[in-house]
């Protein structure tokens, strides 16, 4: 199912209305179908059999649209709060905790909490991949594949970070922890949203690949996390001798800050561009 984003023609009102109408009905059905496990053909039928566009349906679509953005924004707020929690909680619970000195504790508390909250949020909201079969065996195999993919992505990030110049043998654990953190911020969200389906991942990260606001938000947060980690490497060579310049602290902090800013940017950007954003079928 190839989908594309297109710029709505502001001047041609009717066309815009039609397109919006089709889109929002489609969105609704996706929303429903994902919960009820409707097949893809059903979606297509629904969207094409939608009643002709009228003012009311347009308004209804706009409302749904806003609701979806609001849902995503609140999810993002919860995630951002989780990161803050993960930083604040250990200070209360543990003695001698500091982000720099006991960096790995902080890192894994952030990674763990973010992972848990992410999974919980996606499960509660039901914004997941449409399950084709609901058998237990299928679910278990999916779960195993998800875990496998997560581990593979940790390894992949580890190798990439090594290629970027991380020390090979010294502080392997630190490097791997950075890979885990990056996987949590990027791969885990992909897994939650798209399932263990590499094709879909590749598709999402293309210009026309986003199928919903969640996909767009995934694009933005992933790009921001990775850019953050990339930018985080910049201060490492400087001779300032600060405690936060120790490998891999700048990169983990950069990734976290990038993820946080991605969480903020994504709803804002989608809200700002909601006039132009349409997720529609062929």
């Amino acid at each position: 199912m190839a989908l594309r984003r297109r710029y709505a023609d502001q001047t041609a009102k009717t066309r815009s209305a039609v397109s919006c109408c089709g889109t929002f009905n489609f969105q609704d059905s996706v929303w429903d179908s994902r919960r009820e496990g409707t097949s893809l053909t059903d979606i297509r039928r629904l969207s094409f059999l939608a009643p002709s566009c009228s003012e009311t349906s347009f308004r209804k679509g706009a409302v749904m649209w806003d609701q979806e953005i609001k849902g995503m924004a609140s999810a993002h707020v919860i995630l951002a709060g989780t990161i803050l929690m993960a930083t604040v909680m250990p200070t209360i619970l543990l003695q001698n905790f500091s982000v720099y000195q006991t960096h790995l504790v902080w890192l894994y508390s952030v990674a763990g909490l973010v992972a848990a909250v992410n999974i919980a949020l996606f499960w509660l909201l039901g914004v997941g991949p449409a399950a084709k079969r609901n058998s237990l065996g299928h679910k278990v195999s999916r779960l195993i594949r998800c875990c496998l993919y997560f581990c593979l992505s940790c390894l992949f990030f580890h190798v990439v970070v090594l290629l970027y110049g991380a020390p090979l043998l010294q502080s392997v654990l630190e490097t791997f922890s950075l890979a885990v953190l990056l996987s949590t911020f990027t791969t885990l969200r992909c897994l939650c949203l798209l399932g263990p389906n590499i094709q879909a991942w590749i598709r999402v990260f293309s210009r026309d690949g986003a199928m919903s606001v969640w996909d767009t938000s995934l694009q933005i947060t992933t790009a921001c996390s990775i850019m953050g980690a990339w930018l985080g490497a910049f201060p490492i060579p400087l001779d300032w001798d600060r405690p936060w310049q120790v490998w891999p602290i700048p990169c983990t902090l950069g990734a976290t800050l990038g993820f946080l800013s991605g969480l903020v940017i994504a709803p804002a950007w989608i809200h700002w561009h909601r006039q132009h954003l349409t997720y529609k079928t062929k």
Partner: peptide
Amino acid sequence: DSYVIAEGRVVTFLLLSLGLYVPLRLNWDG
């Protein structure tokens, strides 16, 4: 001066970044 001293690694970093940009960009363009 720090970056000039670490020039070898800085250049490798940038080279790899730009190299990775190629497939990412191609994928983005579908």
